[in-house]
Each structure stands twice: as structure tokens, then as C-alpha cells.
């Protein structure tokens, strides 16, 4: 780790001010990606702005047909939240699959979404559920937010404050893990919304989370795993590495999508 200056933000405005004025700043939320990267000397921010003591950013609330989760909410708190479990059980389930217990007790939803790791779970949920990412400056639709590998629509001085998820009619997530990292080799989140059906895929794509229109069409006719049988997506655009070829990932997208649909149909998703 290189030397850096640590700043403890006392409030959101303070954090935003620090972010504006400091040289080469970086926001620290749960630190589950940033700190290991810094330890390996792969990241070297000059100034680190810690949001840990900022209040009011880790609340989970339900209003009308949506659930809003504060950006500093830990994965474990999303996983265990009665509100999330009741309104969007697939999202609570997803949060319980992230990392290991230590990661889930430190890592935050805002940090994960801002990082946009191509193998992370939350981006798939945000995209499939049509979430809105709220920052200190504006509201960004998930459709506009995820821009590629570790890239988002966030401006350099923007901080995610909360994420609002419209409650779907039903939703399901199926994660196929990389055996080593246990990140998603392929993860598919399927949401049946009042107006549309969305299928969002994390892990598989070579440029981050993406939707599968052909699967969405097929599910619109009938929301059943059977509707996806025999459908394929091209291996072009899939990632390929020592854990699996592009063909394997393309194949897994279909398998995971069918299993996600099946999970959405179950009353209580598996723990």
C-alpha cells in the first residue's frame, strides 16, 4: 500500500466538498474491493474519503411500489432486511450470495454498484429491476448507469446516496459461481415487472452487465423456464478465460436464466 491521506467525512456534503477540492480523491465505502487493490499497490489514491461515519445513508425503506436502500447499507443488512425479503425476495437472496460473511458485513450496495465489477451481483439486479441510482446530484436510471467494465455514468465528483428498486411482480436470481473467486461466472436476474420482463446478465459479458432481449420476448409470451428452452445467445461478446470459454458462458446464460425463472416462480427462494 502506498501512503495516502485519510479523511473521515462527517456528512454527505462534507464528503462531496472533499471530493471536489482534494487532489486524486477516492471514496471509501465498505472497502472490500478498494482496500485489497490498494494493498496490492494496484490503486494509489492520494486522498481517501471515508463515508463510514456518514449518517442516514444505510436505511432501507418501502414507499408505494418501491424499496429504497441507502448506499452504505451492508450486503448482510440487505440480505436480512424484512422489507427487502418481503418486497423483493430475490434481491435479499442475491445479497446473501455476495462474497463471504466478512465481505457481506463490510461491503456496501453503493460501493458495489459504483465499482461495477463485471462479475458482481448487484448490477444484474439493478438492471433487471429497473432501479434508479440516486446520487448527490441527480437520479440515473440503471439502463443509463452501467457503461462497461468497471465504468459507470458517475461523474468524478458524484456520490451514490441510495438506490430505488421498483417492486416487481416476481423476480429470481441464479448465480453460477467461479469456483475460485466465487464471483458470478454467470449470474442472471429475471424480473417480471408490471410493464415488461427483464433478463439481466452479469459475469458472462466481455463488457459488463447486459440484457437479453430475445429471452425477454420469449418470457413475455409465457413466464416459464420452458419458454427459454432451445434459445441461444451468441458466444460473441462473451468473456473467455481459464474458467470457461465464451461458448460455455453463452450456454450458461440460458441455463441460469431458466433457473432464475424457476426461482421466481417459487414462493420462497432458496436461502
Amino acid at each position: 500500500m502506498y501512503a495516502f491521506t485519510y479523511h473521515r467525512a462527517t456528512g454527505l456534503r462534507h464528503a462531496a466538498n472533499l471530493l471536489e477540492k482534494l487532489e486524486d480523491p477516492k471514496i471509501l465505502a465498505g472497502g472490500q474491493t478498494l482496500l485489497p487493490t490498494m494493498k496490492q499497490r494496484l490503486a494509489s489514491p492520494t486522498n481517501l474519503i471515508d463515508l463510514d461515519k456518514v449518517e442516514g445513508m444505510s436505511e432501507i425503506t418501502a414507499a408505494g411500489r418501491s424499496v429504497t436502500i441507502g448506499a452504505l447499507t451492508r450486503h448482510n443488512d440487505v440480505h436480512k432486511s424484512p422489507i427487502v425479503q418481503q418486497a423483493i425476495p430475490a434481491l435479499a437472496y442475491l445479497a446473501g450470495l455476495i462474497g463471504d460473511p466478512a465481505v457481506r458485513h463490510r461491503g456496501t450496495i453503493g460501493g458495489s454498484v459504483a465499482n461495477n465489477d463485471p462479475n458482481a451481483d448487484y448490477p444484474a439486479a439493478c438492471l433487471a429491476l429497473g432501479a434508479t441510482i440516486v446520487t448527490n446530484k441527480r437520479k440515473i436510471a440503471a439502463d443509463e448507469f452501467f457503461k462497461g467494465l468497471f465504468e459507470t455514468a458517475l461523474e468524478p465528483n458524484e456520490i451514490i446516496t441510495k438506490i430505488t428498486f421498483p417492486v416487481p411482480k416476481k423476480a429470481g436470481y441464479y448465480k453460477f459461481r467461479n469456483q475460485a473467486s466465487r464471483f458470478a461466472l454467470v449470474g442472471v436476474f429475471v424480473a417480471k415487472r408490471p410493464s415488461e420482463i427483464r433478463v439481466a446478465v452479469t459475469g458472462a459479458g466481455s463488457s459488463g452487465v447486459f440484457r437479453v432481449p430475445s429471452f425477454e420476448e420469449a418470457l413475455k409470451k409465457r413466464f416459464s423456464p420452458k419458454s427459454l428452452e432451445g434459445l441461444t445467445i451468441p458466444a460473441d461478446g462473451m468473456a473467455s478465460d481459464i474458467h470457461g470459454s465464451a461458448e460455455y458462458r453463452a450456454h450458461l446464460v440460458n441455463v441460469c436464466a431458466r433457473r432464475a425463472v424457476a426461482a421466481a416462480d417459487e414462493k420462497t427462494p432458496a436461502e
Binding site: 475460485a180 473467486s181 481459464i242
Partner: peptide, 23 residues
């Protein structure tokens, strides 16, 4: 089932961390 030590042709250890080497 899991442990895959992969060198590429130029001799780099591709599976050089727990992100890629499954215990």
C-alpha cells in the same frame, strides 16, 4: 476438481491468486 495451475506460453502464472486458483 478445483486446483488448476495455469501457465501461459510465455511462462506467466495465470492462476496466481485465489481469484483464479480454487482451493
Amino acid at each position: 476438481l478445483l486446483e488448476h495451475t495455469v501457465y501461459n506460453d510465455s511462462g506467466q502464472l495465470v492462476s496466481g491468486s485465489y481469484m483464479d486458483y480454487a482451493m
